[in-house]
Amino acid sequence: MPATTADEDDPKAASRTDARRQADPPRLTARRGRTAKIVRLAATGVILLVAFVAAVFVWNFYVVAPWTRDGRVRVQVANIAPQVSGQIVDLRVQDNQFVHKGDLLYVIDPVDFEVAVTSADAEVKNREADLQVKNAQSARRQALTTVSTSVEEKQQFAGTAKIAEASLESAQAQLRQAKVNLERTQVKSTVNGRVTNLLMRVGDYARTGTSNISVVDTDSFWIDGYFEETKMANVHVGDAADIKLMGYAPHLTGTVESITLGISTANAAASTQGLPDVNPVYTWVRLAQRVPVRVRIDHKPDDVPLVAGMTATVVVGTGRAPLPTWFMDLRDRVAGPTASPAGGQAEADRR
C-alpha cells in the first residue's frame, strides 16, 4: 500500500492546507498588480525622460546649433567695358570659354586710332623742328650786344623758345595718348575666369564705359550662409565650416571670414518729412532675422563644380550648440559631475 502523509492522516492539518491554498491566489494577484503598476509607472517615467532629453537636443539642433540650409555660392563678376568706342571687328572668345588674365577678348576697329597715332607723330616732328628754330633764334639774340638788339627783344625770343618747348611737350603727350587709345582697341580680360552670357558679336558697336562682356572670376568664389539670429552666438570669425552643396555628396571645407554688421529694416526708412516710418502693426509671431556670414572656401573636391547661386548647407564648428546651463545642472544632480578627460587622467595617475 502507498504511504500516507501526516496531512492525510490528520484532518485538521488537511483543512488548514486547503485554507492556505484558497487564501494564496488573492495575495498573489495583489502582489502582481502592485508590481505591474510599478513597472508601468517606471516605464512612463523613462519614456517621459527620454522624450524630454530628445526635445532638448532637438531644440538645440534646430534652434540654437550653428548650421543653416540657407547658403549660397557667391562669386565676383568682372563686367568688362571698352575704354574707347568703335565697331567690333574681331571676337576671340566664345560663351563659357575659360580665359586667363590678359587674354584678348575682342578687337575694336583700329583704323581711326592708327590715323590718330600717325597724325600725333607728325605733330611731334613739326614741334621739334619749330623748337629747333626758336632755340636758334633765341641763342643768336642772346649772343648780340645791346647795341644790336634790345633786352626786350632778347626776352621775346627766349619766351618764344619756351612756348615752342611747351608745344612740343603737348604734342608728345597727345602722341602717347593716341598710342594708348590704339592699344585699348584690344580689349583684354582683367581676371582669370570664364566668359558668361556672351551676347555680343562682330559688327556690334562698343561704347566707352558700357559693359558688353562679363567674366566670372574663378579665383573669387565664396559661400554666404544666412544664419538665424538665434544661432549667431555660436558663430565666430575664424571658426571652421563644413559645406555641402545640394546635389553633390562630397563636402567642402572653409573658414568663417566675416560677419555682416547690418541688414535692411523696414522701420529705418524715412518718411517724406525725414522722420522714421515705423510700422504700427506688431505681429505676435516674430521670425528670427537672418544674418549673412561670409565663409572662405579652403578646399574643394575636384569633382564638385562651383556655380554662383547654388544652394549650400553650412555647418560652423561641430554643428552642435552647448547644452543649456539648467540642463547641465540637472544632469550633474542626477548622474553626478562629469569629469573631464584631463581630470580622469590625473585621478588615474594618483591611483
Score class of each variant (00 low, 15 high):
3 A>L: 14
17 T>S: 09
19 A>D: 11
19 A>V: 08
25 P>R: 09
32 R>A: 12
34 R>I: 05
44 T>P: 02
57 F>S: 06
57 F>L: 04
72 R>L: 14
73 V>Q: 06
75 V>F: 08
75 V>K: 05
76 Q>G: 06
86 G>M: 01
89 V>W: 00
93 V>E: 00
96 N>G: 03
97 Q>N: 04
98 F>W: 05
103 D>Y: 02
103 D>F: 00
104 L>K: 10
120 A>T: 06
126 N>K: 14
134 K>E: 15
140 R>M: 13
142 Q>M: 13
143 A>E: 10
145 T>Y: 03
147 V>N: 07
157 F>R: 13
162 K>N: 07
173 A>T: 14
181 N>A: 13
192 N>E: 00
193 G>I: 04
195 V>P: 01
205 Y>V: 11
209 G>P: 05
223 I>E: 11
224 D>T: 14
229 E>L: 07
230 T>A: 12
248 Y>R: 11
249 A>F: 07
249 A>V: 11
262 G>L: 10
272 T>K: 12
275 L>F: 11
277 D>G: 04
285 V>W: 03
285 V>K: 04
285 V>S: 03
298 D>S: 13
302 D>C: 01
303 D>P: 03
306 L>V: 00
308 A>K: 13
312 A>R: 09
319 G>C: 01
322 P>L: 02
325 T>F: 09
326 W>Y: 06
339 A>K: 10
341 P>V: 08
346 A>L: 15
346 A>G: 05
